[in-house]
């Protein structure tokens, strides 16, 4: 993770476009300027960034389902539960499953586990739209390579 750059996914472990699931690795850094303020003397991974990690994992799953043709944008959150603290240096596993693929939107359920224990979960709604422009898509391609997105498993990747 590079929290300051919203790079919350380190590696895609498994992307299953038949089961509509994804599993990713996300390692909380030992140090970050974010921890200087959140909180002084007691650094904690901000809950909103845990939500963002679940959204990003879900997002890559949706991108995979669209054959890298569409971009999901976070639209709504339901049933968000932040169950326990996450601290610097912890290794997280984020999983997500698509609950519904609508026309121009998608719903997922996602969760994060640390040492096998669930630390948070949520139901997430995305608007799914065309990539805003070629540069945006090229950037997403770069990110995909960095996090080992299995482009070979995507029909039109």
């Amino acid at each position: 993770m590079r929290l300051e750059y919203f790079q919350l996914i380190d590696r895609i472990i498994d992307l299953n476009l038949n089961d509509l699931t994804i599993r990713v690795e996300a390692n909380v850094p030992a140090e970050s300027t974010i921890f200087e303020g959140h909180f002084p003397g007691r650094p904690l991974m901000p809950g909103v960034l845990l939500v963002e990690a679940m959204a990003q994992a879900s997002g890559w799953l949706i991108i995979g389902r669209t054959g890298f043709q569409k971009m999901p944008f976070l639209a709504a959150l339901k049933e968000v539960k932040l169950r326990t603290f996450v601290t610097p240096g912890q290794s997280l596993e984020v999983t997500a499953k698509i609950l519904h693929e609508g026309s121009g939107f998608a719903l997922t359920e996602a969760e994060i586990r640390a040492d096998g224990k669930k630390v948070c979960n949520a139901e997430i709604t995305f608007r799914v739209v065309d990539f805003p422009d070629g540069d945006f898509r090229a950037n997403m391609n770069d990110v995909a390579r960095r996090i080992a997105f299995p482009l070979e498993s995507v029909p039109h990747g």
Binding site: A75, A76, H100, G102, S103, T125
Partner: peptide, 11 residues
């Protein structure tokens, strides 16, 4: 945004 919830339920 609310209509997305409605569309989901209708679907």
């Amino acid at each position: 945004l609310d209509f997305l919830d409605i569309a989901f339920a209708i679907d």
